[in-house]
Design a protein around this nucleic acid. Sequence first.
DNA 1: CGGCTTGTTATGCAAGCGTATAAATACGGG
DNA 2: CCCGTATTTATACGCTTGCATAACAAGCCG
Lengths: 218, 218
Amino acid sequence: MTVSARRKFRREGEGRRRRDLIEATLDCVAENGIEGATVRAIALRAGVSAGLIRHYFPGKAELLQAAYAAVVKRMTDQAKDALAAREARPAERLAAFVRANLGPPVVDTRIFALWAGFIARAHADTALAAVHREGYLGFRDEVESLVGAVLEEAGHPADAMTLRRHAIAINAIIDGLWIEGCMASSLFDEGELAGIAIASVAAQLGVDLPGDEGSERP
Amino acid sequence: MTVSARRKFRREGEGRRRRDLIEATLDCVAENGIEGATVRAIALRAGVSAGLIRHYFPGKAELLQAAYAAVVKRMTDQAKDALAAREARPAERLAAFVRANLGPPVVDTRIFALWAGFIARAHADTALAAVHREGYLGFRDEVESLVGAVLEEAGHPADAMTLRRHAIAINAIIDGLWIEGCMASSLFDEGELAGIAIASVAAQLGVDLPGDEGSERP
DNA sequence: CGGCTTGTTATGCAAGCGTATAAATACGGG
DNA sequence: CCCGTATTTATACGCTTGCATAACAAGCCG
């Protein structure tokens, strides 16, 4: 008796399925790079058949875009959570922001693998590039407004151009340390990257920041 | 008359062929991402048949490794050229080093596309990761010795740990600005990134660097 | 000038890719 | 309770990929 070997399944809501597929995509990219994110591998990990992907997304490209957008959102949300304490002093908020971006949830090999995988493809894929640009500019604006508040509080208000240069430099410090931390986390003690960043930002702006033990410069 | 349509060819030395194949690989990666670097595309661009690749490399993976090593070498060589003026003052050499890494030949979307493509793959490919690590640590050592010389010249000799932290921070600044410049070169004027970096490094070390117009901090 | 070595090309193959399509089934509304 | 529909599976197709192999010819050596 050759019974139908067809698989049993349950119907799930659209939101749930899309979320599962995106999460499965991220797992695949993080594990084997973007080339490891094939429709079959994604479907297998999501526990559905490959064809279902095309029922919720027009094609694989759109699924990848959605997945990358989820990564960007996750990273920026993490940073914005650090700014929740709105009553804190600007210097404290800046320090918390820096620390949040160089601490455990953000400095992570999986996130980095995702970032690197997508960033590489973004060069040949304008849709992914747009997703990236959006998240990136939001981040820099955040830095710029924080720096402005800190300088104002310290009594060194800066003109727009100086503010911009500070924001670019600080953004670069955070990015660079983030990459170093993700790629060689074993080389740094816990909190060391954040400490280096805060000291560097303090020197950059010429102000004291909480958490910076102070450099021994005269 | 069905004459043999077989292609004419010339025999080339091993060195020449390997170099051509690596260069073709880099072109393909830069143009269409690492997934665009198929053996057929590489061979087409190198002007040879696809099969020849496996005559000079055990497989595609080894060709990619060789290509990535070439990228790393190209970037670090560029930086070391900036240090050729051995008689210059340490501060001048550091400034030249920073400028060299944030100027036209290194800040380039093509180089970045290569870097991003390989960096992403390095997570799943230990051989590529080793190639990367080698070039990276060499770069950081360079920064550390330069910083040491600058601080000594300025009369602020630093202990090993401080030196290390300075090197990490400066390396991060260069990396971060390099990425920003490569990904959004249109957003920066010529020399602006180098100027920001030199000002930032000067603030970080608490010294004056040639090329830094000075910040208006009191 | 003719044979030999080996760099080089051409062809084929199995595997894997994204996608299209039709059959099957879960599940809510009558 | 059964029907209808939308979700889900299964299968197949056309294409590309990396790699293996065999035929071929370029250039050296006698």
